[in-house]
């Protein structure tokens, strides 16, 4: 499947991301509906090109990032946690949080499950915070480590490939000059 995508774009599987993008743009210029109004064959080709590009990008990004949900299992240690795990497996994250929030003691498993539920709800910073606590409280638990690593994987991908750029050493007088420029205009407002 993925080989077809590379073939559609006319690139080799070893092509860099930028080469893929360049190839896409070249084809898109030729087959774009704006350049070929009313041409059904061109429209069909454009859809194929879009699909091929999306497939390659998804494939390449999917390889790099871990999916936090891939390792989740339903077996819980306490009765109440079984219910929470079931909710999470069925993607009822709010229900899971409701059950969790009624519990008095927050052990490592509480934080782990809360982390999963928050991730499911899209609260990634909260998920990271909870997962971190779970691992802190029970460092030897592979399940908890798995969630933390998966949540961190996007950041790791980013940090591992900064495209040749390094951390800025200066704030850049530029930045301050721009703020000063805005202030200048603001002050002039009154006159």
């Amino acid at each position: 499947m993925i080989d077809n995508a590379y073939r559609t774009l006319g690139v080799s599987p070893a092509a860099t991301d930028d080469e893929i993008k360049t190839a896409y743009r070249k084809l898109a210029k030729r087959y774009h509906p704006d350049a070929n109004p009313g041409d059904e064959a061109a429209a069909k080709k454009m859809a194929e090109i879009n699909a091929a590009y999306d497939e390659i990008i998804a494939f390449r990004q999917g390889k790099a990032q871990a999916d936090p949900f891939s390792g989740f299992s339903g077996g819980g240690s306490r009765g109440e946690y079984t219910a929470v795990r079931n909710f999470i497996m069925n993607r009822h994250f709010l229900d899971a949080m409701n059950v969790l929030s009624r519990m008095e003691t927050k052990d490592a498993e509480w934080y782990f499950l809360a982390g999963y539920a928050q991730y499911g709800l899209g609260n990634r910073a909260q998920a990271l915070e909870y997962a971190g606590r779970a691992v802190q409280m029970d460092p030897n638990n592979a399940e908890y480590r798995g969630l933390l690593n998966a949540l961190r994987s996007g950041g790791r991908v980013y940090a591992d490939n900064t495209r040749g750029y390094t951390m800025p050493q200066t704030d850049g007088g530029w930045c301050c000059r721009m703020i000063a420029l805005n202030l200048f205009f603001n002050l002039c407002c009154g006159c």
Binding site: D17, D18, I20, K21, T22, Y24, R25, A28, Y53, I57, Q61, Q65, R124, A125, L128, L151, R152, G154, G155, R156, V157, Y158, A159, T162, R163, Y165, T166, M167, P168, G172
Partner: peptide, 30 residues
């Protein structure tokens, strides 16, 4: 880092060629 990772990954989905290096200067350093 997590949110910048998300932003950069989403940006890299786009077929941006022109000015890509400039935009990456912002996303990875600036």
């Amino acid at each position: 880092t997590m949110f910048l990772g998300d932003a950069a990954a989403a940006f890299e989905k786009l077929p941006v060629v022109r000015d890509a290096a400039l935009l990456r200067n912002v996303l990875y350093a600036g």
